[in-house]
Design a protein around this nucleic acid. Structure first.
Lengths: 342, 342
DNA sequence: GGCAATCTTGACACCGGTTACCATAACAAT
DNA sequence: ATTGTTATGGTAACCGGTGTCAAGATTGCC
């Protein structure tokens, strides 16, 4: 039996209004820092707010404004470090705002992926959603967001969408530069561990490798290429395939760091010295790169900055297309590369 | 969905009521599967809901029910893979519910950490929050949640709280078993790379090492111990400290996988063969363990299961203390351990 | 002093759901 | 036929904020 006495409930806008002798609407004006408001009134109300420790109810606000201050992020994690860095970047961007971040991992091989995503969008009514690779490369998913009227930004390795809906790194160029670094060291037979079929990022990275090889008159023959699917195990397999040929490469570019780690492990198991007998280059610069032996030469993706930009595109849609979309990568030389011996 | 017309606003409960010729209240009863309702009416309304693709507005629901169907998770990432596995576990648990997951990384060294967390809790009014280590070991933070009336679950390595607010692995026992494995292989001088000062998990793991050493009459002298702070770099430093002594250990237990990777890298740099000259054991079984060379023997934490349990404790508070709190770890032998040579 | 222009403020409906309470219909028991 | 009981559905108030619009207070100007 609740007495009429002190309530345990949080203070509401009505409490603030009553205690400061103004109407709810005026309190609302204070909260939203409306310009048409007497300074004295504002201070009086602010004092009461501070005293009560009043914080507006976000659900009520969302309902009245028909606007939800929550950003979403969907991913099918290819890489934990990348996802987490992204999360941190988003948090950087929303820290000074009232936005929050909802995460939603999915399984891209699930047969009801689309239904699953649809349900998620309809249920949560988010302000906007960021889509991470490889889901971001799926145009069908983007179309679903558009159909449901949910704002989105895709994070990708190529021009997947217009600038308002995209943050992008130029993987092709980044890989070209990395491979040219190897060529500059004197390598002529440079292998490629390709990413999975149908992945845009895999295609771009492959194209970058070919660009560099062709530009220097080097052959891209089949014995220099092996396909993986961005996992460690397939990196190992690709490594075995490349290293057991008649004329094995003196350097290998792997389309991501985990696969590069697989190549390194296989090489070491066979007594192939790195970087003495074989140079290895990865892509992503995730935590693993610095941690394996020897530390891996790789390409750093400015994920955190890209995440900040993606979040801002959603928070300020009117400026979305002016917000930076293209991000430069950075080549990070470490100890897994050297000039070939001969 | 029939009708390809212009996409109006989303259907509301009123639309459903009008089209099915019943009142809002009846529709609400259908949505909440109230038992006192005519079967025919229910089916009629359900048909209209399906046709319209109606989904109740979560903000309005949250407001009316005074209850928010969102779970939160705060962490100061010590380990990306762990955080992500945890997220996936939570998603497992909420997949069939209407709950969503909000994430909130923080910096535990920030001077206004407490204010930051307070603001987060007050602003979001979550249904409950999961706290990951090392933040979970901070009693002050737990007290803040209690003070603000926000339900929480801590994830930890020891009995930090009552079962309703805790999911726990027994790190001490897990480490004891891992070290006894080394002893069983014939090792006598077994080094410890300790975790950072003040961390409960670090203390527990250290205690487990001592338990095993003492139980077998082995000395825990200072030259066998070095402290790190759970980062790769400090793992390297600790490795150098342990391996440059007069009588270096033949095996090293590192309190987490990244530090173990640091030890491995340092050893390989100095031509110390692993596992021939030195066995190394880690803790966590994060992705890195399987990926370095040689693959790391370690202890697997059932993070995903723990996360599921934590989420269920929050979703069903009435059953929270009956939900599993204690989780067993699993010893994972790989190629970084072997019997000492001599 | 009178009147318009501008600044402040509050009454009230509304966002999209929920519950409390009441009204009616159907059906059984007396 | 009257009454009691149980199903079922309607009405209105409410959750805690917001927009609209107009009234009241101030000010400027002739």
């Amino acid at each position: 039996m609740a007495g009429k006495g002190k309530r345990e409930n949080k203070p509401t806008i009505n409490d603030v209004a009553r205690l400061s002798g103004v109407s709810k609407k005026t309190v609302s004006r204070v909260i939203n820092s409306s310009p048409l408001l007497n300074q004295a009134t504002r201070e009086k109300v602010e004092a009461v707010i501070a005293e009560l420790g009043y914080v507006p109810n976000p659900q009520a606000r969302a309902l009245a404004l028909r606007r939800n201050f929550v950003l979403g992020m969907i991913y099918d994690n290819p890489n934990a470090q990348m996802v987490l860095n992204f999360q941190e970047g988003v948090l950087d961007a929303i820290r000074t705002t009232e936005f929050a971040l909802l995460v939603h991992p999915v399984d891209r091989h699930s047969p009801d992926l689309m239904d699953h995503i649809r349900r998620f969008i309809e249920l949560q009514r988010l302000h906007g959603v960021m889509i991470l690779p490889p889901l971001s490369e799926n145009d069908e998913i983007a179309a679903l967001f558009a159909e449901l009227g949910c704002n989105y930004v895709r994070m990708g390795s190529a021009e997947l969408d217009d600038p308002a809906h995209l943050v992008q790194s130029d993987d092709r160029d980044a890989v070209r530069r990395a491979v040219e670094y190897l060529i500059g060291q004197g390598h002529r037979r440079i292998g490629l561990v390709e990413g999975p079929e149908g992945f845009r990022s895999a295609m771009e990275r492959c194209a970058g490798w070919k660009d560099a090889m062709n530009a220097h008159g080097l052959d891209c023959d089949d014995t220099l290429m092996a396909r993986g699917n961005y996992t460690f195990e397939t990196g190992r397999e690709a490594g075995i395939a490349l290293l057991t040929g008649a004329e094995p490469p003196t350097a290998i570019f792997a389309s991501n760091d985990v696969m590069a780690a697989g190549v390194v492990q296989v090489a070491l198991e066979r007594g192939i010295n790195i970087p003495g007998d074989l140079s290895v280059v990865g892509f992503d610069d995730t935590a693993i790169a610095a941690v394996i032996s020897p530390p891996l030469t790789t390409v750093r993706w400015p994920i955190r900055l890209m995440a900040q930009s993606a979040a801002r595109k959603l928070i300020y849609p009117e400026a979305a297309s002016k917000e930076q979309s293209q991000f430069a990568t950075e080549f990070v030389p470490r100890a897994s590369t050297a000039s070939p011996k001969n």
